[in-house]
Write a protein that binds this DNA or RNA. Structure first.
Lengths: 168, 168
DNA sequence: TCCAAACCCTTGGATGTCCTAGTATATTGC
DNA sequence: GCAATATACTAGGACATCCAAGGGTTTGGA
């Protein structure tokens, strides 16, 4: 978006917080702001890697999730729960994946309320190919040191458990 | 959005990656996915805390940034650089803050291309009040242990520097 | 049995982000 | 001094996310 700033804007914000008498929450503020910015950077890298496939991260996640399901199909509500996004976001993603011929909707055999999302063979192929690129261009070059990766998994895992994402 | 899942979906994804022969990037994949999900949780908390003020996080960040500027005013391009978002996002936020009477646009005294964003007194008051609530309800109850906060600041700070956010 | 409550998905609306392009103003170089 | 380039902001479009509300299907208790 632009050239590097001369100083870390988040560290500046942390100093501002301390200067204004909010020293007790300055560090968590900085950590949370850093998470927000890191997500933005990572998302941009992911979207860039997926662009040649006509995929966005939201659509990729759904495709990948389906590719790991034994039958290659999942109920929409299940996908919503596992991806931890709003049901309407899944509807949106499925609409576009279906237009692209990567998934199809089919009725649930026993529950008339439920819609199954099923991977087409094109969808399965694209999932494989796009995962290979993501692995090579993003996950394989994350810029995180190996010990820091472990720390992140631990710290954010605890956070997500406390936030009610999972009970395990 | 729903009840806690019985198992951590990101840990499951990590196992899937390992099972499919991508063990070398499974951990970074999990760490990155965890960052994405953590951001989502934190953003939801922040938006909830700001809702009573009619603010979103994007608008709050701009308001807070202005409140720390000595003169209470900043050029839009400067705000874009410091917040590290696209210029059009700043335009969008300023439009809405201006409608709400929290900031005003004024011409730059010497550069006709530049627009200054200036805090109104209402804007300054709201910045103070909303910051107090964010500090109390979000930053003060982040759910991160103090040592983990330091780790996050260090790890994500290194990442952001490597990503070209700042050079310091 | 049968109707109310619960559940599933979709539609429509509000926001935010980015990209591309277009207009206006500054700066640079010949 | 004037044209070419660079910079600043905005308009329009594509996507994603969430919330609120609506219509269809199941479930469960009276």
């Amino acid at each position: 978006m632009g050239a590097p700033l001369p100083r870390d804007p988040i560290a500046d914000a942390q100093r501002n917080w301390e200067r204004h008498g909010w020293a007790d929450v300055a560090a968590p503020m900085a950590a949370i702001t850093a998470v927000m910015r890191t997500q933005q950077i990572l998302l941009a890298r992911i979207e860039t890697a997926l662009k040649p496939f006509g995929l966005t991260f939201a659509r990729y996640e759904l495709l990948a999730l389906l590719s790991f399901a034994r039958s290659g199909a999942l109920p929409m509500n299940k996908a919503s729960a596992l991806l931890q996004v709003h049901p309407t976001s899944v509807t949106n993603a499925v609409d576009r994946l279906q237009e692209a011929g990567l998934v199809i909707r089919s009725p649930h055999p026993t529950d008339g309320r439920t819609t199954l999302i099923e991977l087409t063979s094109e969808g399965r192929t694209l999932a494989k190919r796009s995962t290979a690129v993501l692995n090579a261009e993003v996950f394989g070059q994350s810029g995180f040191e190996a010990p820091d990766v472990d720390q992140l998994i631990r710290i954010l895992g605890n956070f997500r458990r406390n936030a009610g994402d999972f009970s395990g």
